[in-house]
Simulated assay, not measured.
Amino acid sequence: MGSETYHEPYDVLSPAARDMHRALWSLIEELEAIDWYAQRAEVTNDAELRAVLLHNRAEEIEHAMMNLEWIRRQDSLFDKNIRTYLLKDVPITEIEEREEGKEGGGGESEGAGASLPERGGSGRGLGIGSLRGR
């Protein structure tokens, strides 16, 4: 079992890492399908075909959001960023500035690898605690 999209040997990746890979690639494929259906719907001259294609596009959006929700539930850094950036009414480019103001400075509140699972872990962080102030 393998994939051309794996960058590391499949057999050394944890089951959690393999599942995340599956979910991420499923999300990519759903987003690609959304784009394809939208393009096809835009250029067809047949109203009934356009309706079918737009219906299919809507289904793919549902699938993409289901994948994204699974990813959010597995990865604390995705969860944090989804909660920060999605479903907001303020200008998107201002969200980061507002969040940094709340935290009292720049930079990430967690380390760059904070969302990586431990070997055989849950996918909810490294489990090593904060490295700040040490």
Rank of each mutant, 00 (worst) to 15 (best):
E59G: 03
A51T: 10
W25Y: 15
L49W: 03
E69Y: 08
V43E: 11
D46M: 09
E32D: 10
A38N: 13
N56F: 01
R40A: 15
E29A: 13
E48M: 04
E32G: 09
R50P: 00
W36C: 02
L53A: 06
E48P: 00
A47L: 05
T44N: 05
N45K: 05
N56M: 09
L27H: 07
E62P: 00
S26N: 14
W36K: 09
A41I: 07
A47P: 11
N67V: 05
E69M: 10
R57F: 01
N67K: 14
A51G: 04
E62D: 10
L27N: 08
T44D: 06
T44K: 06
I28H: 15
A64I: 10
W36G: 07
A33F: 02
L24T: 08
A33P: 01
A47S: 10
M66D: 14
L49E: 12
D46Q: 09
A47I: 00
Q39P: 03
A47Y: 00
A38G: 13
N67F: 11
E69N: 12
L54C: 07
R50A: 13
N56L: 11
V52F: 13
L68P: 04
L24N: 07
N67P: 03
E30S: 08
R57W: 01
V52L: 14
E69H: 12
A33T: 10
T44S: 12
R50V: 02
E32Y: 07
L27M: 12
I34G: 02
L31G: 13
A58M: 05
M65Y: 12
E48L: 02
N67T: 11
A38P: 03
E62N: 06
V43W: 12
I28Q: 14
L31E: 06
D35H: 12
A64W: 05
H55N: 13
Q39G: 13
E62K: 06
A64P: 10
L68M: 15
R57T: 08
A41T: 10
L24S: 07
L27Q: 04
H55I: 01
M66T: 15
D46A: 07
I34F: 04
M65T: 08
W25V: 06
E59R: 05
T44Y: 03
W25P: 01
E30P: 04
H63F: 01
N56Y: 03
A58K: 09
S26D: 12
N45A: 03
T44G: 06
L54F: 03
A47K: 01
Q39K: 15
Q39V: 14
L53Y: 07
A38Q: 14
M65H: 07
R57H: 07
M65C: 04
Y37N: 05
Y37L: 05
R50H: 05
M66Q: 14
E59I: 00
